[in-house]
Design a protein around this nucleic acid. Structure first.
Length: 803
RNA sequence: GCAGGAGUAGCGAAGUGGCCAAACGUGCGAGACUCAAAAUCUCGUCUCUUAGUGAGUUCAGAGGUUCGAAUCCUCUCUCCUGCACCA
């Protein structure tokens, strides 16, 4: 006897697997798609964060399944990527071998956790059958002008030895190496024109149910701003300048071009060449991060621009604070009304020309609003109004236009690394850029490569040297691979039809299952994966494959689990909690229960071994109770409490408030403990428990005489008619009485005293069952009441006398 | 700088106008059971007081609205997170 979780858990794991109860097919039933972000299978195995987030998904999938939905809950591996390549190099092992080993380990641990995946739909991005469709999508994008090749300033991480997307640069550092500054290089690379979808990406946010914070971060990332593009003349050529403040155009006293701007050299005069070169050299040695804290600096280029509104001659500076690829890479500077421009002007003693009335300009620019001055025919206009009027004027003279500017940049997807999807392109001297014909897909990653210097794919000559598909001449294959975020941008659709060899997926199938109804994953993906996948979805809809344009209707971000002392778990600190160790000690059921019981699922919490232990104790108590249970009648008060619990737990689970749901389940159990119940009550209780503790629930479900699995049984429905609040109040009154008696005993020290209780006539039936008391009705003349306690009796509050 | 979130008993964490001295868990204390421990069960755990009570002071701080505030409003402080020389 006793709770042998090891035995129970392996038993049901096997049974679920044999009977394939979590495998699903399209049907007439209403579908529900629950998805956890597929993990990158690292060699370290599951970490506690995985255990938490996947448990959240599983709990919800189990809940929806019992509610009668046709639930798709698949799993896969984001198995391409740099970490595998790096780890493999370190271990002197091929990435493929390393990855396969890691996945095997992952699978074992995932199965141990009791997650109810449909394993038949397993998807792995390193499988050529999968990445073939990455390449296929790429070709479609090329066809539609969404994929393009361009030379541009790009982010380079010297540790990753590859370029990075804009989203992968965090505070000027590489997202994988927070100690490594990102360098700017000018390279020719492949881009995806995500900016074409900027507006759709923004608008789509209004129709999906995501946390406000996630939506705001995406809006912020897309960064839409309205402004005016004004044509300045530089060396007799038109230069477009973007501004959100056309009202200050009369106050422009200098221009600043980004020091990283490609065309900077065209503007530098002979006299200024030395100065500029010195300047560039100096700011190059400064990291991006430091640059942000740096003072605004610049050097005169020797060139002048002409202001189209008044033909004033304006000096052009090269500056360290202008971003090359936002707007036009050059700004019109209005020191009187912009703090940065002001600081710059002060430093280099450039004229400051006030064009908006109001505050006098002393140590600070005047950012606020006011009437225009020194602005020709626009004087006296309020500056907000002037924005409109000046724009209109410029438009009418064909000197400018109103534009919308986005902060979002096109997605740079080329990576100079091996363990990714090969970009299906061939370069021919004659035909130039030639896409690999669809029939030749997939372009497989060759196994034979040398790791070490540069891109490993360059070391396989067979791979590199090919014939041009168009003209047959000698040609070279593209050796860059795709950013792994390309794989994760559409994997959720492949689950709908994972083994399809002819198509990316069957349209009917994908449109039955997708979009994802509940997507669960960490907040770190909001400005990367979740932007990319929304973009891919919109593209796939545009080419007619999908009927919807948002990948996930609801999205839930889980919190982070910290170490016991509140610090981040990290290997170097030695405070990492390994889920597999916990399973061995307490079992998966208790771990699952603990993970969601200590706080709301979307807030961070600290690991606490006591809490873990206490949840284990609870599971064991439940086990003991049900194994010893002999069915009897469920009394009306238990019925009432049960139905109330069902009602509340259903609502809490729906909102991912598992901590609250579990409190209610525990309360109900505390009430049940020691009492006899009927089979239906037992079943309802176990069904609720099952989403958290599936193994022990299956075991007890079987013990109480069921042949089918609880994992595919039914969620109990709350019967409001059985909720009897009056009865529960009476129950509470009885408890209060017993408590009061105990209290008095303690205060007086009369431990073994005889207890006399005096009640109102109509309340006699409520208290009659209380044990070890002598009960009298207040108007009973024969009652024993030496201290006249019956005089103080009020409704709901009996009198007590101890002797 | 901009944006978002948070501050409740030793700790974690519910509670968003009256049923709140504030659920629940954990920790701590007392007791029961036990040879003993674990588990389990009972009680207590802001302060004072008390035959089951009563009173006082509380929900980051300061004001305010209200018959009534942890909850609504204003300001301030602290912490976390994201974005950031974005023109």
């Amino acid at each position: 006897m006793g709770y042998n979780f090891k035995k129970i858990e392996t038993k049901w794991q096997k049974k679920w697997e044999q009977k394939k109860i979590f495998e699903v097919k399209e049907s007439k039933k209403k579908k529900y798609y629950v998805l956890d972000m597929f993990p990158y299978p690292s060699g370290e195995g599951l970490h506690i964060g995985h255990a938490f987030v996947f448990s959240l998904g599983d709990i919800y999938a189990r809940f929806k399944r019992l509610q009668g939905y046709n639930v798709l809950y698949p799993i896969g591996y984001d198995s391409l990527g740099l970490p595998a390549e790096n780890a493999a190099i370190e271990a002197g092992e091929h990435p493929l071998k390393y990855t396969e080993k890691s996945m095997k380990n992952f699978m074992k641990q995932q199965k141990a956790m009791g997650w109810s995946y449909d394993w038949s739909r397993l998807v792995m991005s390193h499988n050529p059958e999968f990445y073939k469709w990455d390449q296929w999508i790429f070709l479609k994008m090329l066809d539609k002008g969404i994929a393009y090749r361009n030379k541009a300033p790009v982010n380079w991480c010297k540790k990753c030895k590859t370029v990075l997307a804009n989203e992968q640069v965090v505070e000027g550092k590489c997202w994988r190496h927070d100690d490594t500054d990102v360098e700017i290089k000018h390279l020719e690379q492949w881009f995806l024109k995500i900016t074409n979808y900027a507006e759709d990406l923004l608008k789509g946010l209004d129709k999906i149910d995501w946390p406000d914070n996630a939506k705001k971060r995406q809006r912020n990332w897309i960064g839409k701003s309205h402004g005016t593009e004004i044509d300045f003349k530089v060396n007799n050529k038109k230069w477009k300048i973007f501004t959100t403040r056309p009202d200050t155009v009369y106050g422009v006293t200098f221009m600043v071009i980004s020091a990283q701007h490609e065309k900077l050299k065209d503007l530098v005069t002979k006299e200024q060449k030395k100065d500029i070169e010195k300047f560039l050299k100096r700011i190059k040695s400064v990291s991006e991060k430091e640059m942000a804290d740096l003072e605004k600096e610049g050097v005169f280029t020797g060139s002048y621009a002409s202001n189209p509104i008044n033909n004033e001659k304006i000096p052009i500076y090269a500056g360290n604070f202008v971003i090359a690829d936002y707007g036009c890479g050059m700004v019109m500077a209005v020191p009187a009304h912009d703090q940065r421009d002001f600081d710059f002007a002060k430093k280099y003693k450039i004229e400051i020309k006030q064009v908006i009335d109001g505050k006098r300009i002393g140590q600070q620019a005047h950012i606020g609003s006011g009437k225009l001055v020194s602005s020709g025919k626009f004087n006296e206009l309020n500056n907000e109004k002037a924005k409109e009027e000046i724009s209109k004027f410029l438009v009418s003279k064909k000197l400018g236009r109103k534009v919308v500017q986005y902060r979002l940049k096109d997605w740079l997807i080329s990576r100079q690394r091996y363990w990714g999807t090969p970009i299906p392109i061939i370069y021919c001297n004659e035909c130039r850029i030639v896409p690999v014909p669809e029939k030749d897909l997939p372009v497989e990653l060759p196994k034979e490569v040398k790791f070490g210097r540069g891109n490993p794919l360059l070391t396989n000559e067979k791979f590199v040297n090919v014939k041009c598909p168009k003209c047959g001449a000698k040609a070279k294959r593209e050796t860059d691979t795709m950013d792994t975020f390309a794989n994760s941008s559409w994997y959720m659709y492949r689950y709908s039809d994972p083994k399809n060899k002819k198509e990316i997926f069957d349209k009917k199938k994908v449109n039955y299952w997708a979009p994802v109804d509940k997507y669960i994953g960490g907040p770190e993906h909001i400005t990367m994966h979740l932007i990319y996948t929304r973009f891919y979805t919109k593209f796939l809809k545009d080419i007619g494959l999908l009927k919807f344009d948002e990948p996930a209707l609801e999205y839930f971000t889980q919190g982070i689990i910290n170490a016991e002392d509140g610090s981040k778990m990290s290997k170097s600190k030695g405070n990492v909690v390994e889920p597999f160790d916990i399973i061995k000690k307490y079992g998966a059921d208790s771990l699952r229960l603990y993970l969601v019981s200590s706080s709301a699922a979307d807030s961070d919490f600290d690991w606490n071994e006591n809490g873990m232990q206490s949840n284990f104790n609870f599971v064991r108590r439940v086990y003991d109770y049900f194994t010893k249970l002999k069915f009897g009648k469920t009394d009306t008060i238990i019925e009432s409490k049960l139905n109330q619990t069902i009602k509340q737990v259903t609502m809490d689970v729906e909102e991912f408030k598992h901590n609250l749901a579990i409190i209610k389940i525990r309360k109900l159990f505390d009430y049940l403990a020691g009492k006899s119940i009927d089979k239906k009550t037992a079943e309802s209780f176990l069904s609720m428990l099952h989403i958290y503790c599936p193994y022990v629930a299956e075991e007890l479900w079987e013990k109480i005489g069921n042949k089918e699995f609880i994992s595919v049984a039914r969620w109990p429905a709350a019967d409001n008619r059985k909720i009897n609040e009056k009865l529960e109040k009476q129950e509470q009154a009885v408890e209060k009485l017993i408590e009061d008696i105990g209290h008095i005993k303690k205060l007086t020290g009369k431990k073994d005293a005889q207890v006399y209780v005096y009640v109102l006539p109509n309340e006699l039936k409520i208290y009659r069952e209380v044990k070890n008391i002598k009960i009298f009705v207040v108007n009973d003349k024969k009652k024993y009441d030496p201290e006249n306690k019956s005089k103080k009796v009020k409704p709901g509050r009996p009198g007590i006398y101890l002797e």
